[in-house]
Amino acid sequence: MNDISIEYLKEALEYAPDTGVIRWKQRPKIHFKTENSWRTTNANFAGKVAGARDSDGYLRIGICGRLYRSHRVAWALHYGYWPDKEIDHISGDRGDNRIDNLRSVTSAANSKNLRLYSTNKTGIPGVGWYKARGKWRAKINVSGKVKHIGYFDDFREAVKARKAAEMQLQYHKNHGTRDRLTF
């Protein structure tokens, strides 16, 4: 990935780790091809919040002709290097870029901290009614494959089995919670 340099990023943007807000700085002339574009850009953007929300709920910042997800920019500004893994929003709020809400994780670890899908009918991920057997079925994702946990007469027993599997497989405590996004 051809990311812009951290030095360039720090000349253009400032990051407040306690709030997660990224703002445009008064940018130097060397960032622009013409003096007019330098003056206009600084007059219109310096001091303002950088980025806009995309259709997935992430904040994106356009710089040097490319869009960057704000959580990756926040990470780069705070730590001084571009993340080599995925950045997980621990709370599930894709707009919350406070540094204590961000963690660098593998794709597998990130998938263990997903919000509850809107199509879920039981309120518990991996637990659903299995009509063919007339029982509750519990399942879980292990390394990209669905693992069957079991069939249960009682919904609570299916939930208990699913939660035990989540603990054993080190799912994040926020995995499968509702209403974590604020967009």
Rank of each mutant, 00 (worst) to 15 (best):
D96I: 11
W82G: 08
K121E: 13
H89W: 04
K112I: 06
V127S: 06
L102G: 04
A108E: 11
K121I: 11
A132P: 10
S111F: 01
T122N: 05
I87L: 01
N113Y: 04
S107V: 13
D84F: 00
E86S: 09
N101S: 06
K131P: 00
D100R: 01
S111P: 00
A132W: 02
D84E: 15
K131C: 03
D93L: 10
V127Q: 05
S91Y: 02
G126C: 06
D93F: 07
G123F: 07
E86N: 11
A109I: 14
W82V: 10
L116A: 07
I90L: 09
N113L: 04
D88L: 06
I87V: 15
L114S: 13
I124Y: 09
Y117P: 03
K85R: 13
N120A: 08
N113C: 06
A132H: 08
R94I: 05
R103S: 07
N101W: 03
S107Q: 12
V105N: 02
T106H: 06
R98D: 10
Y117G: 14
L77Q: 02
K85H: 10
A109V: 14
S91V: 04
R115G: 14
Y81F: 15
V105R: 01
D93T: 10
R133Q: 14
I99A: 09
L77S: 11
R98K: 15
I124L: 00
Y117L: 11
A109Y: 00
D88Y: 00
Y130H: 15
L102F: 03
L102M: 04
S91K: 03
W82P: 04
K121D: 10
T119M: 06
I99G: 02
P83T: 01
K131T: 10
R133S: 14
I90K: 11
E86K: 08
E86R: 03
V127F: 03
L114F: 00
I99D: 04
Y130A: 09
E86H: 14
G92D: 05
I87H: 01
N120W: 10
W129K: 06
N113S: 04
W129D: 06
D93C: 15
R133E: 12
Y117R: 13
H78G: 01
A108P: 00
L114V: 02
G95I: 09
W82A: 08
Y81H: 15
